[in-house]
Amino acid sequence: MITCDVAIVGGGLSGLYAARLLRKASIDVVLIEAQAHLGGRIRTVDDKGQPTEDGFDLGASWYWPHIQPAIGGLIAELGLSSFTQNTDGDVLFERMSREPVHRFSGMGQEQASRRLIGGTARLINALTCDIPADRLLLNRRVTVMTLMETGVNITCQPSEGRAETIMTRHVIAALPPRLLEATVAFIPALERSDASRWQETPTWMAPHAKFFALYERPFWRDDGLSGTAQSMVGPMVEIHDATTSSGKAALMGFIGVPAAQRQLLNEKTLAKACVGQLGRLFGPLAAKPQATLLKDWATDPLTATEADVAAGGHITATNESWVTGAWRKRLTLAGSETSSQEPGYLAGAIIAARRAVEDVCG
């Protein structure tokens, strides 16, 4: 049996940052992650879809340092560098299939979004360095939490082998409330109001899919285009320049086909439709990418539940406690969706982690 002061369930940005803060406070922490890698909905890959430190962000990518100081401050603290998201040039709009593509002068952004040089995974890798290898448990799904007189007994199922037990004084659950409710059994049961609230809270990114088309160079810039486009035709509804700071050219789009309908399509069919749309918008060169990437978060069982596939919805920021009743003194939620500010965003993950650590240390 493993013992610790605090067990963090979930190795995304919030969980890793909470671990960093607790270790600074000399608190013994064990971090438990169901996947073989850390980062959660932060994933940076190369042209073959493999993890890299100079690639394309399949999940979280942008942040706004002027209006999201929490994430901007952490990036500065870790010594990471960023660059401005390209918005120079005209914007395209596709209203109807029988109409020509409309082109409008780019307005620019007073407070432009930024991206990390190399990709958002740089942030995850920098935070991981803080955690000793023996306090980082990967490939372990938490299946049961049992409330004891002196803490919480956590049952984990490794990807291989027998179930393991972790005994801790307090648990920080750094994953979406809806996913937590759907995948972990609580003994005793949660308060009904808490369980219902967790179920009703949408998980950021879970219903969505991102498509990338990779090119030799960002040719659209030669034509005075920003790479930004909006479409009411689809399959992508919003497109952006996803070229990396090192010059790897790409266009990225959010697919507007609902998750339930995407399940009826195979990946090749959807990718072909996306490439065809880029050709309509940006011309013949766009129809001949060197490679494509498609990440459908709705098919990721460690991100999305059936509720996420069925409907989307917006996350509402709140200061109300996420845990009441018998579990209140032993369990704290810290997923980005639980943040009182910027819920669902990178900044929300940082704010939620800080609040959770204050709850544990307070």
Rank of each mutant, 00 (worst) to 15 (best):
A25R: 06
A25V: 11
A25Q: 11
S26N: 11
S26P: 02
I27E: 05
V29D: 02
V30F: 00
L31F: 04
L31S: 08
E33N: 13
A34C: 14
Q35N: 15
Q35G: 13
A36E: 15
H37T: 15
H37V: 09
H37M: 04
H37Q: 08
G39K: 02
G39Q: 05
G40H: 07
G40R: 01
I42R: 01
T44E: 05
T44M: 01
T44F: 10
V45F: 03
V45E: 04
V45Q: 03
D47F: 07
D47P: 05
D47L: 09
K48R: 07
K48Y: 06
K48T: 12
G49Q: 04
G49E: 00
P51C: 03
T52C: 08
E53F: 08
E53G: 13
D54H: 06
G55W: 00
F56R: 00
D57K: 05
L58A: 12
G59C: 02
A60R: 01
A60C: 08
A60F: 10
W62I: 14
P65D: 14
I67A: 09
I67C: 08
I67S: 11
P69M: 13
P69W: 10
A70H: 13
A70I: 14
A70Y: 10
I71Q: 09
I75C: 07
I75T: 14
E77P: 02
E77A: 04
E77V: 00
L80I: 11
L80T: 09
S81T: 14
